[in-house]
Nucleic acid binder design. Structure first.
Lengths: 106, 106
DNA sequence: ATTTTGAGAAACCAAATGGTTGCATATATA
DNA sequence: TATATATGCAACCATTTGGTTTCTCAAAAT
């Protein structure tokens, strides 16, 4: 079960769930109300999100409140870091072509 | 065929390909050398990356050079923006709990 | 002119994914 | 105590995914 953050955010429903629990703790039932699919389907998404630690559970009686573990989101941001300078254009398309040409004439 | 950026970066091989073509234009053959899987498998990944515009093609004779379209990576960064303040702790777990309690006593 | 090489497309396949329904269990509520 | 509610889990199913092999085609190289 390769449950990494990138696989977790691939699904649009899970991204929506992330956005929901980002600003308030919610129960599976409360979350399911926002979607067409069944509560069990949402539950499975929550399981995946929990397994990769993107969300955390907090039991309160028979209810379970889910919240976003924002720190885990940083992992995605960290991965993006290596490309950030590229889209900020300090190292652009032309540079890349020149670099390619240079490494090719060996 | 829902070819969005998030689905594209879900696969670890594709993330590796992205990292490779980020710094120099490469042909499918050159890319495939970095992996265990066949050139055709890499080709399929490149197709997916192309379809969601994460990479761009540049034909040169019979060779096709692939480069990263860094601008498209910004989409991921943009999605992360809404959570950035959360992991920077300006709005933390406790706040969330309080907010939840408040909205519940209606 | 013939052969080799680079690349995409098609057909196929096992495994993973996202959904469903039905069930078990623990906690509230009547 | 009996019933209703919240949740997770298992079994099942259709579709998607990621890989393979085979094929075709165009461009280089011989």
């Amino acid at each position: 079960m390769r449950r990494d953050v990138f696989q977790a955010i691939a699904d649009p429903t899970r991204r929506a769930i992330i956005a929901l629990v980002a600003f308030q703790a919610l129960t599976p039932n409360a979350i399911a109300e926002h979607f067409d699919s069944s509560r069990q389907a949402v539950s499975k998404h929550l399981r995946i999100l929990t397994e990769c630690q993107l969300v955390e559970q907090e039991q309160s009686g028979r209810e379970i409140y889910y919240t976003l573990n924002a720190k885990k989101m940083k992992e995605i941001d960290k991965w993006l870091d290596q490309f950030r300078q590229l889209w900020e254009n300090r190292f652009n398309q032309l540079d890349k072509v020149l670099y390619t040409l240079k490494t090719q004439k060996k």
